[in-house]
Structures are given as structure tokens and as C-alpha cells.
Amino acid sequence: MTDNTATTTEITDEEALARVKARRGYLLPVHELMAEVDPQILRKYDDLASDLLFSDQPRALDLKTRYLVLVGITTAVKGDPDGIVWSAKRAVREGATRREVLEAILLSALPGGVPTVEEATHVLAKVFDES
């Protein structure tokens, strides 16, 4: 049996973190944990996220819409106020209006429940105060 993992270039945890920070401009605790446990997983995770979120390649959804989807998801999954802030700021930067961001949050009430919307609106107020 042949080991196919040798075809992937091995990177260190420091290299993996540096690559994520250079691409995104920030690091999250999950990035640091992945780098510590397995830098190759962080590299693959970052490649996927970067391809979906940060790529200029044409997609069916434009960047604004992708970030609005993330606003709704980070609201619905509860407990991710940083994700709400991050994705809402990105959506606004890509041209989303306050109403569009609010609608993305309101849509999350269907799978996440009204308490998720209430929590997210407190977070959203901070985003709009900063912009």
C-alpha cells in the first residue's frame, strides 16, 4: 500500500498560522488550536474557507450575499457574536445595507429561534455604531 500523504507539502504550525494571518489579517483561537494539533488540517481548512470567502473567482453568490448568509448562520448557531460582527462588517463593506443585514438576522429565527435574533440585534447595534 502506498502512502499518498507524502504528496502534500508538510508545514509547521508557525507557517500555517502565518499563512492564515497573512490571508485574513487576524487569527482566531480555532486557528491556533488546529495549528497546534495538525498544521495540515489548518492549511486545508484555510484553503477551503479562503476559496469560499476570500477568493475573487466568480461564484454563484457574490461576496455580499455570501457574507449575509454567514450573518444568518452565525446568528442561528448561537454563541458566536464575534462571527456576527465579522460577517456583518464584511457584508456592509461589500455593499449590504442595514436592512439586508437585519433581514439575514431575522431569517435565522426560523431555524435558531427568536432568542438568537434578540441576542444578535444587540451585537448588530455595535456593528452599526462603528460604521
Rank of each mutant, 00 (worst) to 15 (best):
A49H: 03
R93W: 09
L110C: 08
A120Q: 00
G112L: 02
A96E: 07
P81F: 09
D56C: 12
K44D: 00
K89V: 06
V114H: 06
A125K: 14
L107I: 06
A125Y: 06
L102V: 10
K89Y: 05
E15N: 03
Y45D: 01
D51E: 14
W86M: 08
Y45S: 04
T5A: 06
T75A: 04
I73R: 04
A125S: 11
K64E: 10
K89E: 13
E36H: 04
V101F: 00
G83M: 14
F128E: 12
R90F: 12
L52K: 12
P58T: 09
L61P: 11
D62R: 11
R23I: 00
L102M: 14
L52G: 07
D56S: 11
Y26E: 13
A109H: 03
E15K: 00
L48N: 04
H31F: 08
E103F: 05
Y67L: 09
L42G: 00
D129M: 10
T5C: 10
S55T: 11
L53V: 03
D56E: 15
K64L: 12
D46R: 01
L17A: 00
G112Y: 01
A91C: 07
A6R: 15
R66F: 08
V114G: 12
D51P: 01
D82V: 11
P39H: 01
L110V: 08
E36Y: 09
T8S: 08
V77A: 13
T12I: 05
T116C: 10
A91V: 02
G112I: 03
T12L: 04
R59P: 10
A16L: 00
V37E: 07
G95M: 06
I11L: 09
N4R: 15
T12W: 02
A76Y: 02
E32N: 09
E32Q: 13
L52P: 15
P58D: 08
G95K: 07
I73P: 13
T9W: 01
L28K: 13
T12E: 03
L17P: 06
A16C: 05
T116Y: 09
T9L: 01
